[in-house]
Structures are given as C-alpha cells and as structure tokens.
C-alpha cells in the first residue's frame, strides 16, 4: 500500500470521522467539567440535530449547509429546555441520578425522532459526490467542509473560553465550583451557557455525521461509545483532550480494519476505552477522575 492510498482510504476518513467525534466529546467533557455527570442523551441529541437540519432544508428548500445554523440553535435551545425540565431539580441529588435521567432523555429523544421522521435511512443529498484530486490526495467536498467547519468551531470555542468573561467563568466553575460561586459567578447562567455550547456542537456533530454517512434514528446512539471514549482518552474536562481523543479514536477505527474483521470496527473505540481506564484513567491530558 503506497502512501496515497493510505491517506485516501484510511487516514483522511479517520480524521473526518474523528473530528465528528471531537465535536461530541467536547460537549461531553464540558458537561463533565461543569456539572460533573456523564450525559448519555448526547448521541440522541445529535440525531435530533441532524434530522432538524434535514427538516429545515426540506421545508425552506435550502442547501443542508444553510440549515446547519438553524439546527445548531434548535438543539442548543432544546438542551436548555431538557436541563430545565429534567435535570435541574436533580442537582442536589447524587450525580449518578442525573446520569440515569439522561438515559431516559436519550430514549425520549430517539422516540421523538422515530415518530416524526420514521426509522428508514435517508440522506441530505442524492447521488455520489465526486472527490476532488489535490496532488494525489482525494478529498470529497463535504469532507473538506466538515474539517473546515470543525476547525472554525474549535477556534471560536477556544477564543470564547480564554477571552470572553463567560468563558472564563465556565473555566472557573470547572476548576472550583465553590470558589467560583464565592467570587460572584452565577452558576445557573454558566450551566445554561454550557448547555448552549454542548447542544450546539452536538447538533453540528450529528449534521456532519449525516453528511458524511447517512441519517438513521440510531446514528447518535451508535456514536455515544466512541464519543465517550474520546472524552475519557483526552482526559475528562480537557477540551484540547477531547479534540485529540476524537481524532485518535476516529483514525484508530478506520485503521482497525487492517487488523480485525470489519464487523468489529465499532469495537475499536471500546478497546481504547478499556485500555485508557486500565493504564491511564486520567487520560492523555491529565483530566479529572470522577
């Protein structure tokens, strides 16, 4: 196998898939950092975002790319609503109770998608998109868009967290909630902000997953395991870790078919998760251990 086919058939699809995982893992890790529980409805929220974009694009006759911002806003609002309805009153309880509630929310979100859009596979665009050749490296247009948008979102998030007052408040609350509260940071606003970011990124990850593969009602549930593996591999609470973790998981998944039967491709993220928990539970970037 020469270098070009390695890049074209394994590395590039892995990086694209990995950047989709990274978007989800950033949300997971933010929720872990600020609210300190695992959010199991994340995958199904991504499914919802993906189908919202499909719906909006079909309704207004837009291209799916134009529908992405709408889906991001809808998912962000939905995330706040879910928190307000189902998680907010559990904050004084042991955190694991909220994890159970999020499991229920996952089931509810999935049922809503199945009721509205059915269980059949669909996609944003018909036909096969032809890859463009860049000096032997073949990139499909939607792969290029995926990578560019993900890079843009990550830079925007980084600027927000380091430059903006609310971003700094979020980091403060992640480091030490009591101290943050004492210095006058409004917990509820920070939590709402977290849901906006996590929900929005989640919809984007669902959208790009749908763009690069296809839309199914179980697509989000199926990326939950790799997304969590990415967040834990990077180190819980570390945004840069979630990005690196996502890329590692995505590339490993694509490369795994060289060694194991392709039926078990989905399990490579599970293997990564087990190895991380065994050898280095703080993850690559020394995150929190909960």
């Amino acid at each position: 196998m020469d270098i070009f086919s390695f890049v074209n058939f394994f590395l590039l699809p892995g990086v694209v898939q990995g950047s989709i995982y990274a978007l989800g893992a950033i949300g997971i890790t933010l929720i872990y950092a600020i609210m300190r529980y695992g959010h199991f409805a994340h995958g199904d929220l991504a499914t919802f975002g993906a189908f919202t974009a499909l719906f909006v694009a079909g309704l207004l006759g837009l291209s799916p790319y134009a529908a992405l911002p709408v889906a991001v806003v809808v998912a962000a609002l939905l995330a706040i609503a879910i928190d307000w309805l189902f998680y907010a009153h559990l904050r004084r309880m042991p955190k694991i109770i909220t994890t159970i509630a999020s499991f229920g929310v996952a089931l509810m979100l999935r049922s809503v998608v199945q009721i509205i859009w059915g269980v059949d596979t669909t996609s944003y665009t018909r036909g096969i998109s032809r890859p463009e050749n860049w000096f032997g490296i073949r990139v499909k247009p939607h792969e290029l868009v995926t990578l560019l948008v993900v890079i843009g979102l990550v830079i925007a998030l980084h600027l927000f967290l380091t430059r903006n007052k609310w971003g700094k408040a979020m980091r403060a609350m992640s480091d030490n909630p009591d101290l943050a509260l004492l210095s006058g940071i409004d917990n509820n606003k920070v939590i709402a902000m977290t849901w906006v970011i996590a929900g929005g990124l989640c919809a984007a990850s669902g959208f790009f997953l749908g763009l690069n593969t296809e839309l199914r009602s179980l697509m989000g549930w199926n990326i939950l395991l790799p997304t969590f593996a990415a967040a834990i591999l990077g180190g819980v609470g570390r945004i840069e870790g979630a990005i690196v973790g996502g890329l590692v998981v995505g590339v490993t998944e694509e490369l795994s078919v060289l060694v194991i039967p392709s039926e078990y491709k989905m399990l490579s993220s599970f293997a990564i998760l087990l190895v991380v928990l065994l050898l280095r539970p703080t993850g690559l970037f020394r995150g929190k251990i909960l």
Partner: peptide, 19 residues
C-alpha cells in the same frame, strides 16, 4: 471508578456481545 464509567463500559459490553 465512579459509576458513570461502568455505565458507558457496560453499554460497550452489550454492543460487543450483540456484534
């Protein structure tokens, strides 16, 4: 670890068994 980790790993175990 805390029980969240067990939850996500058992989801993986169930998936592995199904596969």
């Amino acid at each position: 670890f805390r029980s969240d980790y067990l939850a996500i790993v058992t989801i993986g175990v169930a998936e592995a068994i199904r596969l």
